[in-house]
């Protein structure tokens, strides 16, 4: 059985039907990517999974535990963390304090220290800038901080929303290198990206989202060679 299993969720913004019978699953140790155009419902999906939006019907199960009945903050305790779009780090707190906030739900000090070492191993830059204010970091560093902060909550699944957003191409590559490292350290990741090319390079499987429902689901390798994906999402003729 999959680690995270989403079955037929329907989400509405008022009268607008944003997600239509959406189903997907993520296995332990996978990177799964959800690609799609602007407004296809990528972020809506992540918000629903992390409990900020409530689906009108359908189920979200983590290891068989039905999550839709919990409020957003309790979903974190149950092992799912959301790295929001646009990074949203705490600008007035130091890097260290940001990371500590990430560990808010973890009361085991021993575990916190292990996680912190893990984060600093993957993002040595954060260790250097431990005492600096979050708001003074560069865009790439802020993205690192947002990912590190999420890792501190010791999640079973980590949702990454558009990590490439607003970053220079060089930085995008290095951020995705970090995503690989996070994966190598044992993290299960659901990655939402507009940049389909790079997302499919790191992921093992992918879903293509079109106007609120899954249009295609396949392995990343197959999607990379898929005619439609190449044309629509990678901009190739």
């Amino acid at each position: 059985m999959a680690l995270l299993e989403v079955k037929n969720i329907n989400v509405y913004y008022g009268k607008i039907h944003a997600l239509k019978d959406l189903s997907l699953n993520v296995d332990k140790g996978e990177i799964v990517t959800l690609i799609g155009a602007n407004g296809a419902g990528k972020s809506t999906t992540l918000k629903t999974l992390s409990g900020i939006l409530k689906p009108r019907s359908g189920s979200v199960q983590l290891e068989g535990d039905e999550l839709t009945r919990y409020p957003a903050h309790q979903i974190v305790t149950r092992g799912m963390i959301h790295v929001p779009e646009g990074r949203r780090i705490f600008g007035r707190l130091t890097v260290q304090e940001n990371l500590e906030m990430g560990a808010f739900t973890v009361k085991n000090e021993q575990l916190n220290r292990t996680n912190l070492t893990k984060v600093f191993d993957i993002f040595p830059r954060l260790k250097e800038r431990r005492k600096q204010l979050g708001g003074t970091l560069s865009g790439g560093e802020q993205q690192m901080l947002a990912m590190g902060r999420a890792m501190m909550s010791n999640p079973k699944v980590l949702f990454l929303d558009e990590p490439s957003m607003g970053l220079a191409p060089v930085l995008v590559d290095s951020i995705f290198e970090n995503v690989r490292q996070m994966h190598a350290s044992g993290m299960t990741i659901l990655l939402v990206e507009q940049n389909a090319r790079i997302a499919l390079q790191v992921a093992s499987r992918g879903y293509v989202l079109q106007t609120g429902s899954i249009a295609l689901a396949d392995t990343a390798a197959n999607l990379q060679t898929n005619e439609m994906v190449r044309k629509v999402y990678m901009g190739e003729a």
């Binding site: 979903i75 305790t77 808010f104 739900t105």
Partner: peptide, 18 residues
């Protein structure tokens, strides 16, 4: 403190806003 800085993120960190 987290709430003061950013309510949405505070919630995403597992903080009960209510």
């Amino acid at each position: 403190k987290a709430m003061r800085e950013d309510e949405d993120v505070a919630q995403a960190m597992g903080i009960n806003l209510v």
